[in-house]
């Protein structure tokens, strides 16, 4: 341990919800997207699921809203070290979309992509079982554009770069293909509890 002379740090809080190396950002919600925020209205938004599925399908805004509503209330964790507690998102569980397209048994991973062209890769197991959503509301209001509105992917148990803003679709694959940050040195999976920040972690 390399103790820094004269460094005490913030008052210690026993917060079992805080993954290693993270701090509580409180009311802040930093925006860290690397690209220009798109001018995307709900009428222009679509969401497609294809690749290794029985029935590829594209939903528009109204069609996606006919699926059963589902909410997430809990925490989110950014690789830059902030965590945010007690956030409330609403939208539709990804399971509901996948039930329509019916993934092949050979599908093991997915690439999620945005209307901006941003991409991120995930194991399919991280997107199923009630752990991932397409979210269009935050705190009871439409999701702000800079936070990925009209709709973003939400995978809150992984670092938040996996939760692609302005989500446009998922392509299911039988192998892992690194996405945007993953090609830029970030970890393939990004589990905050194992502190999988960079590709060497």
């Amino acid at each position: 341990m390399n103790v820094t002379r004269g460094f005490d740090g913030r008052p210690r809080v026993q917060n079992t919800g805080l993954p290693p190396g993270q701090y509580d950002a409180g009311d802040d919600w930093p925006v860290l997207s690397a690209e220009v925020t798109p001018d995307l209205s709900p009428a222009d938004w679509t969401f497609r699921v294809d690749g290794l599925v029985e029935q590829p399908r594209t939903w528009d805004w109204d069609e996606a809203h006919t699926l059963p509503a589902s909410a997430y209330e809990g925490d989110i964790h950014c690789v830059t070290s902030w965590s945010k507690f007690g956030v409330r998102f609403a939208g539709v569980s990804l399971d509901a979309f996948l039930a329509v397209v019916r993934p092949h048994g050979s599908a093991t991973h997915a690439v999620a992509y945005s209307h901006t062209g941003y991409t991120t890769n995930l194991p399919l197991a991280d997107l199923t079982g009630g752990r991932a959503w397409i979210a269009w509301e935050y705190d009871g209001k439409p999701l702000p554009t800079e936070h990925g509105g009209p709709a973003r992917l939400l995978v809150p148990h992984l670092y938040f770069w996996k939760s692609a803003k302005w989500v446009a679709g998922l392509t299911l694959l039988d192998h892992d293909e690194p996405g945007f940050w993953e090609q830029n040195g970030y970890h393939a999976r990004g589990n905050p509890w194992e502190e999988q920040r960079y590709s060497g972690d």
């Binding site: 050979s106 062209g117 991409t119 694959l173 040195g185 590709s199 060497g200």
Partner: peptide, 29 residues
């Protein structure tokens, strides 16, 4: 059957360089 990912939208700003995962993994004084 193997598919690869083919983006429907133009790929956003690609990275400029390959990065070393080894350098990123090691804490240095």
């Amino acid at each position: 059957m193997t598919e690869t990912f083919a983006p429907v939208t133009r790929f956003a700003v690609p990275g400029r360089i390959a990065v070393s995962s080894r350098a990123a993994a090691e804490w240095q004084t």
